[in-house]
Design a protein around this nucleic acid. Structure first.
Length: 473
DNA sequence: GCATGATCATGC
DNA sequence: GCATGATCATGC
């Protein structure tokens, strides 16, 4: 009943039973002795603001402008812990220290807004510590990072969007550098030079100023008072952590469509199952589907096709496990109101210099692409120009058509070698495939074997050919 | 109407 | 900054 007592402590912040019930519930949702369980629970924060995450807990008693408030609210209201100023990690049994830190948006993407301040340096104690038993490592060996986007317009920390969450364990290589940093700081303190410490002394681990009101602190071997400092992870290092974490977040583990085999009805194959998900929406416009699935599709949304397909499949992530494993490529196809397909289907651009090196069709990059199974989500425009879902089908290229496509590949290589990058197989040259530009603009080029610049191009499957493969719509 | 070239929007 | 999926623009 330890937490019952704690709940009482928090009464100044949390003052209704509803909230207390939520708090207790939160604490039962994870195992606070297990880092993995803590991380799993913490991951639910991603994509939410703190306000949403704690579902409207009353916090009026708190001064939201206080520094460190984000972390405090997170600890008390989301995790239901109250570690205070302990020398132990916040989740003591799991050895996990909770660290939240703001990000800012720059042209290069998300970066750390500031260094990550860790535990205070006690100069007198530091003198006699070793790195392995240091107060720094004791508290900060395993971090749970909660990264949120700091936006100027947002008034309250409750409104910041949480972008990424994850456990952080330093690599052995990092630890070596951090150890050297730590020893350097310790050495200066031992020599009575604590007042000369500066952040420029070290690489990953810094001794940053912390607290301005508090007076100078005592240091060994010197009568001079030293400014109060804390260990910190430098901004550059924090940026590395952020990159790694955001990458983990995005690529992450692919998401499954079928969560359990129980979802299949008897005799149903995977193909049947996927297709059956789309059937209820046949005949509906994208707007109608969006409405049914409660998707916010405004008219400016350009990736509506993709969003709708994903929602029908019930996946949020970019990577769909089954499709990845099976090499399925999901593509949307939009027919004109007349039923005609205008647009050909593009593939990744090739580098002229790489393409000419390809030894055989079998090992070529484009053959691997053509060989995949395709999942076509087919729309037809109605007389109001709205896209109406007609059908969703799996398709793969028949062998005889691959042979045609091979000719295009072969001819393309021959022409590149003959320095004719501007004259590659046209749509009229072959019934199945052709080559055409695919670039940002005409300045977006690759170098040709002869050293010229030529706009980026790729193989395309002819619209007419694809249409012939779709069957009646 | 179609071939061909060009570029856009988005997300990584 | 660029790959990717998608779509637009132009001229014959």
């Amino acid at each position: 009943m330890g937490w019952a007592v704690m709940v009482v402590w928090e009464c100044e912040i949390i003052n209704n039973t509803d909230t207390i019930v939520k708090r207790i519930k939160a604490m039962l949702e994870y195992d606070k002795t297990d880092p993995v369980s803590i991380e799993k629970y913490a991951k639910k924060l991603v994509g939410q603001t703190l306000d949403e995450a704690i579902s409207g807990t009353i916090l009026s008693a708190m001064n939201k402008e206080d520094k460190g408030t984000f972390g405090h609210i997170l600890e008390t209201c989301y995790f239901g812990i109250n570690p205070g100023n302990s020398q132990n990690p916040d989740f003591k049994e799991a050895g996990v220290e909770l660290k939240s830190t703001p990000l800012k948006m720059t042209k290069k993407g998300l970066v750390s807004k500031e260094r990550l301040v860790m535990n205070m340096i006690d100069y007198m104690k530091l003198e006699n510590e070793t790195w392995e038993t240091s107060s720094f490592l004791k508290k900060n060996a395993l971090l749970l990072l909660v990264l949120y986007l700091h936006e100027k317009g947002r008034k309250s920390v409750l409104d910041y969007m949480i972008k990424a969450v994850g456990l952080w364990k330093y690599s052995a290589e990092d630890l070596k550098i951090m150890r050297d940093d730590w020893l350097k700081i310790q050495k200066m303190v031992k020599e009575g030079k604590a007042h000369e410490l500066s952040e420029g002394d070290t690489f990953y681990l810094g001794a940053c100023r912390k607290g301005h009101k508090e007076g100078p602190r005592k240091q060994p071997k010197s009568e001079i008072g030293a400014k109060q400092r804390a260990f910190s992870l430098k901004q550059r290092y924090v940026n590395e952590m952020i990159n790694a974490l955001l990458k983990r977040e995005q690529s992450g583990i692919p998401e499954k469509i079928v969560k359990s085999v129980k979802e299949y009805s008897s005799g149903q194959t995977f193909e049947d199952f996927i297709t059956s998900k789309f059937i209820p929406y046949y005949g509906m416009t994208q707007e109608e589907i969006a409405c049914l699935l409660a998707i916010d599709l405004n008219k400016e949304t350009k990736n509506a096709n993709d969003i709708i397909s994903r929602n029908i499949l019930g996946v949020k992530k970019k990577n769909i496990e089954e499709f990845e494993k099976a090499g399925v490529t999901m593509r949307s196809i939009v027919l004109e109101s007349t039923g005609k397909l205008i647009e050909s289907i593009s593939f990744p651009t090739f580098e002229y210099t790489e393409l000419v090196k390809e030894k055989s069709w079998e090992s070529s990059s484009i053959k691997a692409q053509y060989d995949k199974k395709f999942f076509f989500v087919i729309y037809k425009r109605n007389n109001k120009n709205e896209k109406v879902l007609k059908k969703a089908i799996f398709w793969n290229m028949p062998y005889k058509d691959l042979i045609e496509a091979k000719k295009v590949w072969k001819e393309t290589i021959l022409r590149i070698k003959a320095d004719k990058c501007d004259n590659l197989p046209k749509i009229t040259d072959n019934p199945v495939a052709h080559v055409r530009p695919h670039a940002q603009n005409k300045k977006d080029t690759f170098i040709t074997p002869s050293g010229k610049k030529c706009v980026k191009k790729c193989f395309w499957l002819n619209a007419k050919y694809i249409q012939s493969q779709l069957g009646p719509i």
